[in-house]
Design a protein around this nucleic acid. Structure first.
Lengths: 298, 298
DNA sequence: GACAGCGCTGCGAAAACTGCAGCATTGTGC
DNA sequence: GCACAATGCTGCAGTTTTCGCAGCGCTGTC
């Protein structure tokens, strides 16, 4: 679509950091691109880029304009989907950003169920930590986000919220596997494995140990939930995850036990979209389905 | 802005009803316009216009696209205003659609107060009946609407609602001017003047008399509230208006009396915008001021 | 102080667009 | 029933816009 040519113009130049680089990326001469930018700025009525000695950078007006053209482009996709929809095609594409914990179990099942009803709809799943998932909504890189304990919540319109208590996962023959009333201090006294700082579970663990004598002292800090689950089978360690990512009758060698809620606040898993945005039909429908499915965890 | 050239293309052609007419309106040849349309349709991927033997008409896809391109254009204005705002100019333009009753008194004062604070902001006031005011929001012809008893309320995001009882207005020496407990049937037994069908006051009067023996039997039906107010000074007639349009210590020759609420439901005056739309800074601020001012009538 | 990288600008070539004339089609009026 | 007017559409040639090339002045770097 020629009419949102401005999008790639602003976006690519801002990303490349200089007109010449951007021009090379898009296989035109820098002079052509330069003139396009000049024309755009003239039509818009203001400078969009700061000219620096080593290139260009978006100025505040440019940031606003970039956000506008992004939203415009996303909205045009929505219109396209609507048009396809009214011609009976039931096509569309859903982009969802979600925490790693959701990936192995919950999402595949949900996507499969949706595609069984609407085979014309395709999906992009983007693994994102909680901050990045929110950022993707703002830049229209994702339609919906499913995040455990989001960070900012500005511009985040909550479609569904379900509580998810942090659980300790350990080998079936772990000393704490049968102990009644599992406390956090018990876990931290033994070898434990925790997620890196981006993740909500880590955030809750930090909160819970702040000011306490028991400190987090992980033998492994990792950003792969699967790695952590597997590791506790080798060394007799404990890792921490949320129920939605754990198969109910999963690996019989693993034991999953909810931590005492006095120690650790119950985290919230939030399904959301960009505030005020009208989602494409397919994305909105899928979000509805997710919200319904999440009821089960309420 | 060249990048929303598509707007005038779709809009003008749809309005003119034929390519040749539209081409004449915009001072180009029909062939040129025809090719622009063809290119647009190709880029969009679908037909936008139905070709009829006597011209063209938007098809459903075209309607969707037109709505998109309208919203896009309005949003670009918003961005422009934001940019002007961050360069400290405090410029902007507010378009408000409102019922006739609001015009003489309430709005001028509010606009004056706003412009005293922000002289760079200009205003368009569009007198609209309640259906048209809502329609203008949808087509982005107005930013905000102030309507008595709106019709549809779909896509109408209520920013503020205040009750407005219908009042009878009559000459000071009218027989009913002093009668305690004014009933609607008293008024309808004497010469009365009522608004035309578009207006909310008329709507409430119709509702109140439906199924009753007393019928509306106006000596004048008019779409000018000022005319009606003036008329009751000549013939000893009664007209019906809402308090916000009536000066408290106004014309001493007029008496304003609230009708018994058993006869006539209290109407609602609603301040609203298009659902989900992000208003330009100036419009949003002005709407806030209006909402605050309407508190006085609550 | 040479140099590399940047944004920007004439100038001729290439591409895109416009205007003109004319085609086929369809509803209208006598 | 048939001329007629109005519509969308399409070659073709002229005009406008855009592009690529080369080169300028500038600035931070080694």
């Amino acid at each position: 679509m020629k009419y949102l040519h401005a999008y790639s113009l602003i976006h690519d130049v801002a990303r490349a950091g200089s007109i010449r680089k951007a021009a090379e990326d898009m296989n035109i001469t820098s002079s052509a691109l330069n003139r396009q930018l000049q024309r755009l700025e003239e039509e818009f009525g203001t400078q969009i880029f700061e000219r620096l000695p080593r290139g260009v950078r978006l100025n505040p007006a440019g940031e606003l304009l970039l956000q506008h053209v992004r939203s415009q482009s996303a909205d045009l996709d929505r219109v396209r989907n609507q048009v396809a929809d009214l011609s009976g095609e039931r096509r569309g594409h859903v982009t969802i950003g979600c925490s790693q914990g959701l990936n192995p179990l919950f999402l595949p099942e949900q996507i499969a169920r949706y595609r069984a009803k609407h085979p014309g709809v395709t999906f992009s799943v983007r693994l994102r930590d909680r901050a990045a998932a929110e950022h993707d909504l703002r830049t229209f890189s994702s339609d919906i986000a499913l995040v455990f304990e989001p960070v900012h919540l500005v511009d985040f319109e909550i479609l569904k919220a379900v509580p998810q208590p942090v659980c300790a996962v350990m080998a079936a023959d772990h000393p704490l596997a049968q102990k009644p009333g599992l406390r956090l201090r018990d876990c931290l006294g033994l070898p434990h494995v925790i997620p890196t700082a981006e993740y909500g579970v880590r955030h809750l663990l930090e909160l819970a140990t702040r000011g306490k004598s028991r400190r987090l002292n992980p033998v492994i800090e990792a950003d792969s939930f699967e790695l952590m689950r597997r590791y506790v089978l080798y060394e007799k360690a404990i890792c921490f995850q949320i129920p939605i990512g754990l198969q109910p009758g999963g690996d019989p060698r693993l034991v999953v036990r909810e931590l005492d809620r006095r120690d650790l606040p119950v985290g919230m898993l939030l399904l959301g979209q960009l505030r005020g945005r009208t989602l494409p039909v397919a994305s909105a429908k899928f979000a509805q389905q997710l919200a319904a499915a999440l009821e089960a965890f309420d």
